[in-house]
Design a protein around this nucleic acid. Structure first.
Lengths: 346, 346
DNA sequence: ATGAAAGCGCTAACAG
DNA sequence: CTGTTAGCGCTTTCAT
């Protein structure tokens, strides 16, 4: 079983194993005709390098680890796809690594993971990427990593990163609602553990301020990135003496919960109340009406991060990259109902 | 860098490397006091076995591959969680392997994957698990695998499998609708590539037959497991001269599409039309009204399959296992509107 | 119950 | 440009 080995190929091609290794790894220093001969032998024997052997003998295993602790299935899948695309392209392997970002042993766990399989480096996604103390430890262990964070601009802190401007996108969504004529806009917050949640809240506040509107505590409901909190939060907003005419959910799942709350309360969206989300997850397209949201290409973001990591592993220079989620307007937002108070139905 | 090796531990404990290896792998043949000493040394040196070395030198790498080709994010995540739970528990690694189940080289691709990393065995999920020719080849390569299939009972074909009775669950959902009093029930089919789709259709037909109702072609709309096909399919049903009073979508995403179609047509669910899905994905809980569906614990199913595979790898006897998705009744289904034709709103 | 020697298949560090 | 010699860290023999 197993397939042909380096030595088999070497014998067949009449060269040394090392030469075959060189060809297999695309090193320049092989005479074209020798290379040709080796290539033929590889083909003939259907040779595939054994990744374990390569990893064991080399400095690292040409495999990166994708680390995440995120309850959002779409997000995870998108990230995996992005990482896989980059890994396939660069001939790296991928190991996925769900983890508990709140664990006190986070850094040690990741270190062990890296050592046990000679992982070449890590892509850290939110919220793991926000555990700064753990990151410092990781750096201390000399483990290469790249992190994806929520920030309005390049932190320039010599930890390579991809930064996503959640604040700006949240500002754009809020502005969209303001321009439609909404004066009272509710905000359903995401989990405190996520920096992105704070950034989005900031974008919301900035936009209100920019329009000279007051920031009201009762309009900013706390919660986590889950449907139920969206539902409950929206209910609380509807029950206000002066309910908002629009609600901005910190992500699409929260917004879906708000949408359900509206429908269960007999409110029609967007006629009685506008609702916007964030993320452009399938949720936002698969509801009725579909949700206005901010498109955040987690797949592309993670793919870039993965490429940066691989460059870093190869000691090539890497520059941080920024991403701006873009506003996607769909049916769930419209101008507020003109004069009269919202009418209740059913 | 790296951590302590077997030899380091051996030196520290004053035994041979092999003895440490025995302890690390939980072999019986070590005197308790020796084991104790070794364990202490392992602890002291914070030793972690190197998985690459173990995999290279052993017969296989104590790692299983989870193979899937499925567009459904929730499904994939649930499967990964199940596989991970089993792998963590059994001290196996996990490699995920998205693939194109229609590729003509499927078997060869998987074989290469297995050989390159000395993967111990594969868990094949639908629809990969339904490519019987590829499976035969895989078996020919002596690659251990377990498959998850949609079947009403144990196929007993000496390929170990977990079989999920989609037909029975679809029968239960249809019966639920019939018992509510629905006489015309639409069925939105899933992708032809998936055997489960045919099984669910069969369950639907069986139930109608059991109730002495005719099976009408115009009520069974073709499509794929995607939201848009659910939307379009439902629209077609609504446009029928005599539209159904209930719609059974082949999975939750399709049902969500049907729900959106109903809402966009001004039909109220469940008052004007009942809608049921299949899968119990978050979709079904996060819509309004939440969807009646069949709970299918992909995580548990895959966890079992993974355990079976590991048992098989260890040459332990394995028995096939069956799963029955269970009916979950939620707000999207209700008795049909009494006499009068459905009223259109807005 | 324990150990010694010989690899697993590859790459690193040197030669030539 | 190409080959040689050592390992990488573990598990397999097979002894003892």
């Amino acid at each position: 079983m197993g397939s042909a080995t380096l030595d088999d190929v070497a014998k067949q091609a009449g060269v040394s194993a090392k030469t075959v290794s060189r060809v297999a790894n695309g090193e320049r220093s092989v005479r074209p005709e020798t290379r040709e001969r080796v290539l033929r032998a590889i083909e003939a024997l259907d040779y595939r390098p054994n990744l374990l052997a390569r990893g064991l003998s080399g400095a690292h295993a040409y495999t990166i680890g994708l680390v995440f602790d995120n309850p959002n299935a779409y997000y995870i899948i998108a990230m995996q796809q992005g990482a896989l695309a980059a890994c396939d392209d660069m001939h790296f392997g991928l190991q996925i690594r769900p983890c508990d970002s709140t664990a006190s042993t986070l850094a040690e766990d990741l270190r062990d993971f890296v050592h046990r399989s000679r992982i070449s480096g890590l892509v850290l996604t939110t919220p793991v990427s926000e555990r700064t103390r753990a990151l410092r430890k990781l750096a201390g262990y000399h483990i290469p990593f790249v992190r994806i964070i929520s920030a309005a601009r390049d932190p320039r802190d010599d930890i390579p990163c991809v930064y996503v401007d959640d604040r700006d996108a949240a500002y754009a969504i809020t502005t969209h609602l303001l321009q439609l004529g909404h004066m009272r806009i509710g905000f359903l917050q995401g989990g405190k553990r996520h920096h992105a949640s704070a950034e989005r809240l900031k974008g919301y506040k900035d936009a209100l301020q920019h329009y000279g509107l007051p920031i009201r505590d009762e309009l900013m409901v706390e919660g986590d990135y889950v449907f139920d909190d969206g539902f409950r939060g929206a209910r609380r907003l509807f029950d206000l003496a002066e309910p908002p005419t629009a609600i901005f959910g910190c992500n699409d799942e929260i917004a879906a919960g708000a949408l359900a709350a509206a429908q269960s309360a007999g409110l029609s969206v967007p006629y009685d109340v506008s609702i916007a989300g964030f993320e452009d997850s399938p949720f936002s397209r698969h509801s009725w009406p579909p949700l206005t949201t901010a498109r955040q290409r987690a797949d592309i973001i993670v793919e870039r991060a993965t490429r940066m990591l691989i460059a870093r592993i190869r000691d090539e220079p890497v520059d941080n990259e920024g991403f701006n989620p873009e506003l996607v307007v769909r049916g769930s937002t419209a101008p507020p109902r003109p004069k009269s108070r919202q009418r209740k139905r059913r």
